[in-house]
Nucleic acid binder design. Structure first.
Lengths: 285, 285
DNA sequence: AAGTGGTCTAGACCACAGA
DNA sequence: CTGTGGTCTAGACCACTTA
């Protein structure tokens, strides 16, 4: 390939501002928060994301044509399309045959790790994450656990119960089940280590895919005790199933949040959506 | 391009079954439920989706290499990659450089319209959807509504309140706000028309992008009366903001579900995710 | 009719996994 | 080392929108 230099990604191609928001076309600085992972389409995407965040195209404004972007960045149209697909999947821009792409809004600046890790999420919203280990046991896997973690019939699991805190205030109960090979690593971590995810990452364990189910649950005696709420209080529940890039299950977790501490957001589009409603099937644990 | 005939998409290329699930390699019928929209990569994706659902590769099994798929379907590798990207974004398969793709699970068979439309969702889970119109008014837009629907300062909105039912049982309260140009169409629909979405679609209004926020809310007097629950009952709330392919806002809705009637699922991956947690900011209405 | 995004091709090189 | 998916290119044609 042409191996364009990094500073090829700088400057700003102007699109078309929406009616009623002309005049704010500053920010030619080309500064970029996004990570340079050396992949061109990500750099282009990051640059466009920043431009959109700066309001260079306005909300409801039009992006430059793909051909124009390709020339501007000195890459092929295919690369531009890769970058735009990213923005599209993040709900930043629309696309429709025949017309220019339209800016929908500003990106929620959250990376994949922030989606999985309570710790990273807490930091990203400016709070101090904490964790209190309540219990960690090794026990034979239940039927559901064996199936979900794809384990042998007689396999054990590590079951961990933790209270997660924001700036010292308990907000979530985390019940996580790990297969033995992951659990052994978890067990060796210092007690009250805040982020298992980060530590596991350093052991070469990569969280690659996750399925989440969100519904409502009621606090049991443990929840009430640990969260300091009344027994039977309604909690927002997230069931999470995570695998590594190989498809090997890494964890199966049930998190219960105190109301008012968290909300979940999803974007979907006619092109690609990973969002669906389910008929409620009762407690899945 | 080579314009392959439709029946080029038939037969089945076998991958590699996971340990412990060999022997179920039937289904050479090539039957396909998927829609033939004439786009090759979608046809390939649908075919692979069916193959996966039939267990041809097994859960945890490996897909054939891209090159093999390309030859099998008689298309280029690029097209195969488009198809696989679809499956990936649906959480069906993983992908990692260096190794074959791994089957994660079976697709949730839901289309985009099922995600937006209560009616389609209800049908897809085998229940009879219903709607009872409680009120429909035209009134000046509030500040938030004006911003979210991108309206002029003095614009009106149509505000609709409906009770949604499953087989006659009330399960959800839907408070939707439409800009005038959409609301006028809605107002002309027959009272107790079940699916506004389907009707609007026939008027050429296309729902293309949606943002959802999910959290917990408590039943107010209206909710309690209409859902037949106690005042203050915890409800699962979905805030939804929908736009057409042009980026023009179509609706802004707050839906409140009785607990135990619905759950929301999300898939995300390290590659592309549209899912994020938010710091809770109180009632957004 | 001109412009734009959607789809597809054929080829290239690279980074990484696993034998 | 070989096979695999990840990235990128340069070109082509089509469907749709807008003027």
């Amino acid at each position: 390939m042409g191996a364009p230099t990094a500073d090829r990604v700088a400057g700003r191609l102007l699109g078309e501002a929406p009616a009623g928001s002309a005049g704010d076309r500053m920010n030619q600085d080309g500064s970029r928060r996004g990570t340079d992972d050396g992949v061109m389409y990500r750099r282009v995407a990051a640059d466009l994301r920043d431009a959109i965040a700066d309001g260079a195209y306005g909300s409801g404004g039009k992006l430059p044509a793909e051909a124009a972007l390709a020339e501007h960045y000195g890459v092929s149209r295919g690369t531009i399309r890769q970058a735009l697909a990213l923005l599209r999947s993040n709900g930043l821009v629309t696309s429709r045959r025949g017309t220019r792409r339209v800016v929908l809004g500003t990106a929620p600046v959250q990376s994949f790790s922030e989606l999985l890790s309570f710790t990273n999420w807490a930091r990203s919203v400016g709070e101090e994450p904490g964790a209190v280990l309540d219990s960690m046991v090794v026990r034979p896997a239940g039927d559901q656990e064996r199936e979900r973690l794809r384990l042998e019939p007689d396999a054990d699991v590590y079951a961990v119960l933790r209270v997660r805190t924001l700036s010292g205030r308990p907000v979530m109960i985390e019940r996580t089940v790990y297969p033995v090979w992951v659990g052994e690593l978890v067990a060796r971590l210092p007690v009250n280590e805040v982020s298992y995810t980060e530590q596991l990452l350093e052991h070469g364990i990569v969280f690659a895919d996750a399925d989440h189910t969100i519904d409502l649950a009621y606090a049991d005696a443990d929840d009430a005790r640990l969260l300091g709420c009344a027994d039977g209080t309604a909690l927002l529940r997230e069931l999470r199933h995570t695998t590594d890039p190989t498809g090997r299950p890494l964890e199966w977790s049930e998190d219960r949040y105190l109301p008012g501490t968290v909300a979940f957001t999803v974007h979907n589009s006619i092109a690609a959506s990973a969002f669906s409603r389910l008929r409620h099937a009762g407690p899945a644990r």
